[in-house]
Design a binder for these strands. Sequence first.
DNA 1: ATGCTTGCAAACGCTTTGCAGTATG
DNA 2: CATACTGCAAAGCGTTTGCAAGCAT
Lengths: 169, 169
Amino acid sequence: MSPKVTPGLAQMQPPATLQEALHVAGRRLTPQRALILSVLHQVDGHLDAEGIHSLAQHHYPGLNLATVYRTLAVLKEMGLVEQRYFARDHKREYYEAVGKREHYHATCLGCGKVIEVETPRIRQAQRELSENSGFVFVHACVCFEGYCAECAQARSQDAGEGEAGADGA
Amino acid sequence: MSPKVTPGLAQMQPPATLQEALHVAGRRLTPQRALILSVLHQVDGHLDAEGIHSLAQHHYPGLNLATVYRTLAVLKEMGLVEQRYFARDHKREYYEAVGKREHYHATCLGCGKVIEVETPRIRQAQRELSENSGFVFVHACVCFEGYCAECAQARSQDAGEGEAGADGA
DNA sequence: ATGCTTGCAAACGCTTTGCAGTATG
DNA sequence: CATACTGCAAAGCGTTTGCAAGCAT
């Protein structure tokens, strides 16, 4: 690793915990790993590998996309990061640091915004299904699609005005 | 189209409805399209493009995978077919003819089996969330992962015997 | 000093697309 | 007969991997 790391990177994340967690897993703490995790913690939003990569590059220009992917795999395996999918198009993987309350995501088909939603119904569904089928649930991938309040309103107005087919499917 | 079509293909699907539906959409009925839809109806299971392709090739050896993809896109757009994802690994798209009752899927991490589950909780969640957020839900992608009754039992037995780490996590 | 990590670039797997010939309505 | 559709092959896209050099411990 030759490119200079911006000062301040060192204190960005590692509360010594990461160091330790990695060590237990037989892995090493590197500036890249610390940085990537810190980016995920700072931007509490939802980033894909490329988003993480470009944000992280502000601090660490030499960072390679492959390293981002590999680091995400490690952090995921260690349970520090979760991988999610948004919207119907699941081509792209998104990542999110763990620690927040259980939540799911809803993507607005109008503005693309992703909002987080909380509901106990998914768990409830799993509990109920488990009871009468014996299936043991480990994970649920849930992503909602629709229109946020604003876009929904805008659309209903458009529909009223144009009347010719402003609506798209 | 030169390869011979197996006799019987003609009657396989087109209840004249497909023909009509396609026509309305400004499209044409081709043996490929009829076949692909019929495959999806016959195998009520869950197929990816390649699965559809190889099944369909029994009847139509010349069928090209690209045609399968294009046809699926058309049928999806016409609302005759739904595209789904299974398990956490969403690399691959699966397709399913519409018409069945609303259901979701649970993939067994042990044997790979995909079972269909019905639950009103997803709808309920959407209804509730919609009420207090104004979000208008259009679609929900839900896929469960876990262990089917059999695999779950097998795993718990293994865990009891080995005791050294038969569990994989 | 040991070997886990990184950067680079090539490979991968699934899906999409450009093009010229073909068949449908 | 116009043109939507197909087969073929190549491109696309996000993600993964082999390899040699480079760090962390």
